Computed example of a mutant assay.
Amino acid sequence: MFSDDPADWIEYEKKQLRTVLGRLTRMITGTLDPHLARNPDDEWAQLAIAQLTGVRATLAQLAK
């Protein structure tokens, strides 16, 4: 149950965003980076890394 203080809500939301950011970062570094290392010309992996890198940057800003 949330308190009535909006600062508590914001802190909770930021923690959730940091969790998502961590999972996304692990996806990029643990899955997409090795994929691209083995097959750098893979068009799908290049698109995925480009899109997810932008999402990661946005989440990092929101989680501050």
Results as ranks from 00 to 15, higher is better:
Arg23Val: 13
Ile49Gly: 12
Ile49Asp: 12
Leu24Asp: 05
Arg26Gln: 10
Arg23Leu: 11
Gly30Val: 05
Thr19Val: 02
Leu24Cys: 07
Ala60Thr: 07
Tyr12Pro: 00
Gln16Thr: 02
Phe2Gly: 07
Thr53Ile: 02
Ala7Glu: 14
Thr25Trp: 01
Leu36Lys: 03
Ala45Leu: 07
Arg38Trp: 11
Gly54Met: 07
Ile49Cys: 02
Leu36Thr: 01
Ala63Phe: 00
Val55Asn: 00
Asp4Trp: 14
Leu59Asn: 02
Thr53Val: 03
Leu47Asn: 09
Arg26Lys: 05
His35Glu: 10
Ala45Trp: 12
Leu52Met: 10
Lys64Ala: 00
Arg23Glu: 14
Ser3Cys: 12
His35Arg: 01
Asp4Leu: 15
Asp42Gly: 01
Ala60Gln: 08
Asp41Lys: 12
Asp33Thr: 04
Asp8Thr: 01
Gly30Ser: 05
Leu62Ser: 05
Met1Lys: 13
Thr31Ala: 13
Gly54Ala: 09
Val20Ala: 05
Thr58Val: 06
Thr58Gln: 07
Gln51Asp: 13
Lys14Glu: 03
Lys15Val: 06
Gly22Ser: 00
Leu52Pro: 11
Asn39Leu: 13
Leu32Arg: 00
Leu17Gln: 11
Gln46Ala: 03
Leu21Ala: 01
Met27Asp: 05
Thr58Leu: 08
Trp44Ser: 13
Arg38Val: 08
Arg26Phe: 00
Leu32Asp: 02
Asp4Cys: 13
Trp44Arg: 11
Asp41Pro: 08
Asp41Ser: 09
Thr53His: 01
Arg38Met: 13
Thr58Glu: 09
Lys64Arg: 09
Trp9Asn: 09
Gln61Phe: 10
Gly22Gln: 06
Gln46Leu: 06
Thr25Leu: 00
Asp42Val: 08
Leu24Trp: 01
Met27Cys: 12
Glu43Lys: 11
Leu52Gln: 14
Asp5Cys: 00
Pro40Asn: 02
Thr29Cys: 09
Ile28Cys: 04
Arg23Asp: 15
Ala63Ser: 05
Pro34Ile: 15
Ala7Asp: 14
Lys14Pro: 06
Arg38Gln: 08
Pro40Glu: 12
Ala37Lys: 10
Arg26Asn: 12
Arg26Asp: 15
Ala63Arg: 01
Ala45Ser: 10
Ala50Lys: 15
Arg56Thr: 04
Glu43Cys: 12
Ile10His: 07
Thr53Trp: 06
Ile10Lys: 10
Pro6Phe: 10
Ala60Trp: 04
Leu59His: 07
Glu11Asn: 04
Leu36Gln: 00
Ser3Phe: 10
Ile49Arg: 08
Asn39Gly: 11
Gln16Ala: 07
Leu17His: 02
Ile28Gln: 14
Met1Ile: 08
Leu52Val: 04
Leu36His: 01
Met1Cys: 07
Glu11Tyr: 01
Gly30Lys: 07
Gln46Phe: 08
Leu52Arg: 15
Leu17Trp: 02
His35Thr: 04
Lys64Ile: 05
Asp41His: 11
Gly54Val: 04
Ala45Val: 00
Leu36Ala: 12
Ala37Leu: 04
Leu47Cys: 10
Trp9Arg: 11
Gln46Asp: 11
Gly54Gln: 09
Leu47Ser: 11
Pro40Thr: 09
Leu17Pro: 09
Asp4His: 13
Asp42Ala: 08
Ile28Ser: 09
Leu21Tyr: 03
Ala60Ile: 00
Arg23Phe: 03
